[in-house]
Simulated assay, not measured.
Amino acid sequence: MITIRPYSTLDTDDLWRIHLLVISEANVEPTHQHYHDILHIPEQYLATGGEFLVGTGKDGVVLAMGGLKILEEGKAEIKRLRVHPSFQKKGYGQQILSNLEQKARQLGIRSLYLDTLENQLGAQKLFENNGYQQKEPAIIDGFNVLIFEKLLA
């Protein structure tokens, strides 16, 4: 079980470390400019009314993260959903995703989008199990990704 709380500027180094671990396992250059929003969470997520959540273990160590980025009225994107590789398959990603969806509903979001790399099969399964429908594949900043969408009630 993890404790989920809002992001703090003190979390930045821990979030970047988890990101590097997760993306390296996906065989992607983890320091690509596409990912630098993790270093600018207040401006990229919070300033636009979104959310960024952190999941910590009993000892307070950051194990998981995820963001809700507002795109336009009624639309948002789930981004940077990551779980430390040593703690995957324990439901932590599900907890972060569920909390972000709850926040989206509170904000009046009607449509959620997200993308994942084609080789991140665990993420794809998580999204499909949560009612996300796969849309067209795309290339974003040079990465082959799958786009998913979920309509919120």
Results as ranks from 00 to 15, higher is better:
residue 3 T to I: 12
residue 7 Y to S: 01
residue 7 Y to W: 04
residue 7 Y to H: 00
residue 10 L to P: 02
residue 10 L to H: 13
residue 11 D to Y: 08
residue 11 D to V: 03
residue 13 D to M: 11
residue 20 L to K: 14
residue 21 L to Y: 10
residue 22 V to L: 02
residue 24 S to M: 09
residue 27 N to G: 01
residue 28 V to W: 05
residue 30 P to T: 09
residue 31 T to K: 04
residue 31 T to L: 08
residue 32 H to V: 02
residue 34 H to L: 04
residue 38 I to Y: 04
residue 39 L to T: 08
residue 41 I to G: 03
residue 41 I to C: 10
residue 43 E to F: 07
residue 45 Y to D: 03
residue 46 L to F: 10
residue 46 L to A: 05
residue 49 G to C: 08
residue 49 G to P: 14
residue 52 F to N: 03
residue 54 V to Y: 05
residue 55 G to E: 06
residue 58 K to Q: 14
residue 59 D to T: 10
residue 59 D to E: 14
residue 60 G to K: 04
residue 61 V to I: 15
residue 62 V to W: 08
residue 63 L to T: 09
residue 66 G to C: 05
residue 67 G to S: 02
residue 68 L to P: 01
residue 69 K to I: 07
residue 70 I to W: 07
residue 72 E to A: 09
residue 73 E to D: 05
residue 74 G to H: 11
residue 74 G to N: 13
residue 75 K to S: 09
residue 76 A to F: 06
residue 80 R to H: 00
residue 80 R to I: 03
residue 83 V to G: 09
residue 83 V to H: 04
residue 85 P to A: 04
residue 86 S to C: 12
residue 87 F to I: 11
residue 88 Q to F: 08
residue 93 G to Q: 00
residue 93 G to L: 01
residue 94 Q to K: 15
residue 95 Q to A: 07
residue 97 L to V: 12
residue 99 N to V: 00
residue 99 N to T: 04
residue 104 A to F: 09
residue 105 R to S: 15
residue 106 Q to I: 13
residue 106 Q to C: 14
residue 108 G to Y: 07
residue 110 R to T: 15
residue 112 L to S: 08
residue 112 L to E: 11
residue 116 T to I: 06
residue 118 E to M: 13
residue 121 L to W: 11
residue 122 G to V: 10
residue 123 A to P: 02
residue 128 E to N: 05
residue 130 N to L: 02
residue 132 Y to N: 05
residue 133 Q to F: 06
residue 133 Q to P: 00
residue 138 A to E: 06
residue 138 A to S: 07
residue 139 I to G: 03
residue 139 I to H: 08
residue 142 G to D: 06
residue 142 G to I: 05
residue 144 N to T: 02
residue 144 N to V: 00
residue 144 N to I: 00
residue 146 L to V: 05
residue 147 I to L: 04
residue 148 F to A: 02
residue 148 F to K: 06
residue 150 K to M: 11
residue 150 K to F: 13
residue 151 L to P: 07
residue 152 L to E: 11
residue 153 A to W: 14
